[in-house]
Design a binder for these strands. Structure first.
Lengths: 206, 206
DNA sequence: GTTGGATCTTTACGTTGTCAACTTGACATC
DNA sequence: GATGTCAAGTTGACAACGTAAAGATCCAAC
């Protein structure tokens, strides 16, 4: 809640951003299930109908949050990629970053894939998706340049992103392990590393 | 709506199943966003509070539907596996089946991963998840037996399921293609085939 | 035949999203 | 400085929702 404006009187100054912050607070605390426009308005200290004035409806606000989530993902993944030099380690690092962000802000990241809550045709959302795709694509392209010039980079990129998102869904939302031990953090990192190895080397014996 | 009972008078005969059918109808027509206990009750021709009597609350009913969805998935995947002999083609067929079911009944399949709507600790749900896992595991195990005895089968199985679910999320919920042509059905089948090839052969050149 | 329990209804309460009508504040123009 | 105009918020209302509690109805066993 970094209030950049006086926020006194009838006019708030920067209500849209205040509402976005409040919305993220709610989602972080109570998850997407506990999200409501009225609760957001309450936290921002405005009337219950104020959010609709700026974002139209629930989908309007959540779509903006989805764009932000994709942007955050993109930045974190780009940073993770820059920190590694070996192309395989880079892919693994990007995967770890993706899954880590998805776990640190579950609700916020889930919004991206909640097509029932979001305007999937929103240009900003589509652009944010493509921009994030480009980061993964860059990593895959570097990998291909060094290890396999014949690789279909677009397809491989989609495979990698699908796998990363699948990990978020399967490993974190389903209870497949009889003994789910500890925080599961290092477990997930190990999973990503193992998956990356298999993706690069293949399931077939060499 | 196969009504197995007279459904006359005060007692319905088999309300729980009727409610499940009605719920699937609603979800199929209006998606998970349009789902409500009251609408389900309306379709089943009972009072709005009747569902709660049998399923406790919303999560109770949806959890049962999630179990059914996993069971349906398991059966369809098992059939697809039996129809192929080559282990690689088998894996591809299972993947296609998974994605096809997920698209044919989007709402129903999404319930499985909606941890906010479902009781993830429900024993039947956990069991259904494990049973479905076993089907994929069997296919991966056969693949390993023929092509790579050293393969970590559990990890490879999780990789395959993660990828399949990731395809459902990424390819169907995000608009990454500048030109999204036609029905996208054959596109998705091609995607699965390409992904399977890459999974088996690896991203690295041989 | 009556008693008990399961099944379903009725009533009620609080919460939600969204719409329409209203008020307030700021700013530009005359 | 008065006036017009428009965006920004408020207020009030409405229908729909989930769920809890209490009442009605049927079946079955004794």
């Amino acid at each position: 809640m970094t209030q950049t404006a006086p926020a006194r009187g009838y006019h708030h100054g920067d209500l849209p951003n205040a509402l976005k912050s409040a919305a993220l607070e709610v989602i972080d605390e109570k998850g997407l299930g506990g999200f409501s426009l009225r609760e957001v308005a309450r936290r921002a200290g405005v009337s219950h109908a104020a959010p609709a004035h700026h974002f139209g409806d629930t989908a309007g606000l959540l779509t903006v949050l989805a764009v932000d989530a994709l942007g955050h993902m993109r930045r974190v993944m780009a940073e993770a990629a820059e920190a590694e030099t070996d192309p395989v380690e880079r892919l693994a690092a990007v995967g770890r970053a993706y899954v880590r962000v998805s776990r640190e802000h579950p609700g916020h990241c889930q919004v991206v894939f909640r097509t029932d809550l979001v305007d999937t045709d929103d240009p900003a959302l589509v652009a944010a998706g493509l921009a994030t795709f480009e980061v993964v694509r860059g990593v895959v392209a570097d990998l291909a340049a060094e290890m396999n010039p014949d690789l279909d980079i677009d397809t491989a990129t989609r495979l990698c992103w699908s796998t990363m998102q699948g990990v978020v869904e399967i490993e974190q939302k389903m209870k497949l392990h009889a003994h789910h031990s500890g925080t599961g953090l290092s477990d997930t990192d190990d999973t990503i590393s193992a998956f990356t190895r298999m993706l690069v080397e293949g399931l077939r014996a060499r």
